[in-house]
Design a protein around this nucleic acid. Structure first.
Lengths: 200, 200
DNA sequence: AAATACAGACCGACCAGTCGGTATATTATG
DNA sequence: CATAATATACCGACTGGTCGGTCTGTATTT
């Protein structure tokens, strides 16, 4: 656990506050005064650390990563098959959905912001590249171990990503006719079933 | 083709202008003066037809439907198998992606707006229910004709929806390492492959 | 004459950022 | 080591510009 210096503590305080408001209001409707109130710091203090509202929200993209899927990168995967890992990923997503729904709502807001601002878009894209790279690693493991067919890992990684992002829809529209867990599990099962070699 | 009266013509003019600005700026950053300029109508005229900015944007949700997927509901489907229809849907989505990318960008903006406003959320949800219902009809056709396994049509309809919504990601992040057409086709093939009965 | 459609100047509320001021921490100097 | 000077951290009142909505006036239709 890294020891933070005073500056980082202050910045995290600001970012946490900004994040909390951002999740419900998006970028434009989040005012600096909202962040002042939430952070219990002054406007002058906030502007000491961030030169502008936009600068702050660019920093928030990286900060969002700390809330999102840390478990994706740390789980011990050596003794699991590729399909088991994919199912674990689904479990992690569901767990985040149940405990930190704001992560997905924030993603929606970052998408909207990325639509308006190329810097946000470029920064967000880096996060996605990391995620897609991880999914590809899993798929390649499956291919290497003969569990999976010889598939285009980049395209299938994108299919995994979109299945997971379907959760954003649940966060927004809270559909009670379909259970989110059932959706996630089914989607991943459908995908695994197709990429798996017969007789495996 | 319905004959529009003068009021409807004026309203469509306003909505078209609002839509065009909204797609790039979202709700909050779209000003009424933006819409004044784009529509070449006066503010007074716009407020004659819509009582508020929000009222205008609520109307825009229905208006968005006219841009989105009219072909989904009109294609002659009687002589096609369920999987063929699903592939047709994919083709329509790709066609819209290539010719009317703004439809997906607007969806992202509506999602963000739905996050902030329950009226928008409820209205958007109606559109999604129509789409999901359509997907379910196709899946049930496949089950009825013994092409598909006995699957949970609601959950799989949701999987189809999220695969299609993966295109939003392409619109935003314009990934050149994965081809959007290849993504759509592959995703749908993976799904069809899993729900299809063996030996079909 | 009354109703509807439209125009555009205007206004109060709002907000990102500024800046003079105070408090605290760090560095320089004798 | 003590003090002065400088840098950093923080505060909050203030400001100019923006924007949703109003409203008086004009034009057109019923």
């Amino acid at each position: 656990m890294k020891i933070l210096d005073k500056k980082e503590i202050a910045q995290n305080k600001i970012l946490d506050a900004a994040y909390e408001v951002f999740v419900g209001k998006g970028y434009s409707d989040t005012t600096m005064d909202d962040i002042v109130k939430k952070s219990e710091m002054s406007k002058g203090a906030i502007y000491h650390y961030y030169s502008s509202k936009k600068d702050l929200f660019l920093a928030l993209i990286d900060h969002w990563e700390t809330y999102s899927f840390p478990d994706f990168y740390t789980k011990n995967k050596k003794n699991k098959s590729a399909s088991e890992i994919l199912k674990d990923i689904t479990d992690v997503v569901y767990d985040v959905y149940m405990t930190k729904k704001h992560v997905f709502l924030a993603e929606v807001e970052f998408w909207s912001l990325a639509n308006k601002d190329n810097e946000v878009k470029d920064k967000s894209k880096v996060l996605y590249e990391k995620l897609l790279f991880l999914f590809e690693l899993v798929l390649k493991k499956g291919i290497r171990e003969k569990e999976f067919k010889d598939i285009n890992t980049k395209v299938v990684a994108m299919s995994i990503l979109s299945s997971i992002q379907g959760i954003n829809w649940f966060c927004l529209f809270d559909d009670s006719t379909v259970d989110a867990k059932l959706y996630l599990d089914t989607s991943m099962d459908l995908l695994i079933n197709s990429v798996k070699r017969k007789g495996f």
